[in-house]
Simulated scan of single mutants.
Amino acid sequence: MPIGGLSSSLIQGTARWLLLILLVATAAPVGTEESFVINERTLRLMEKRYGTGARTRLLGWQNLIQTTGGDDRAQLERVNRFFNAMAFVDDDIHWKKADYWATPIEFLASEGGDCEDFAIAKYFTLIKLGIAEDRLTLTYVKAVRLNKAHMVLTYYPSPGAEPLVLDNLIETIQPSSQRTDLLPVYSLNGSGLWLAKQRGKGKMIGDSDRLKRWRELLDRMTNEMEQEEEAP
Rank of each mutant, 00 (worst) to 15 (best):
K212V: 08
K142D: 06
P157R: 09
K212E: 08
M204E: 14
G112K: 10
Y123C: 01
L76C: 11
K212F: 13
D209P: 01
L146C: 04
D90N: 12
A149H: 08
D90V: 11
A196V: 01
N147D: 15
F124R: 02
G190P: 05
G5C: 00
S177Y: 04
F83M: 09
A98H: 10
G53Y: 09
R179V: 07
S110D: 06
S7D: 13
N84I: 06
R78A: 15
W95R: 12
A196R: 00
T139L: 15
M221P: 01
G192D: 03
C115R: 06
N147W: 00
S110W: 01
G200M: 08
E224H: 13
R16M: 07
E106N: 08
E216N: 13
L164S: 04
R215D: 02
N223P: 00
I65T: 04
A149Q: 06
Y140C: 05
R199K: 14
A15D: 13
S35T: 14
L166Y: 03
G60E: 12
L43D: 02
D219H: 14
I93P: 01
T32M: 04
Q62R: 10
G190Y: 02
L10H: 13
A161Y: 07
S7M: 06
L45D: 09
S9L: 11
L18P: 10
N84R: 09
E40F: 01
K122M: 05
T103M: 09
D167K: 03
L45Y: 04
A27P: 12
A28T: 15
S35G: 07
E47D: 10
I65L: 09
S110Q: 14
K201R: 14
R73M: 12
D72H: 13
I11M: 15
G70C: 03
R135L: 09
A74Y: 01
W95M: 11
R213K: 07
L64T: 08
V24T: 14
P104S: 08
F107H: 15
G4T: 05
E106P: 06
V144P: 01
L22C: 09
W61Q: 03
H94S: 10
T172Q: 12
M86R: 14
F124V: 14
L43N: 05
A149C: 03
I120P: 04
V165T: 12
L183R: 13
F118G: 01
T14I: 09
E162N: 06
L217D: 07
R215M: 00
G192W: 03
D92C: 06
G5P: 07
L20V: 01
L182G: 07
L43G: 08
T222S: 14
L59I: 14
L76M: 04
A54Q: 10
L22K: 12
S8R: 11
E226T: 07
L6T: 13
Q198N: 15
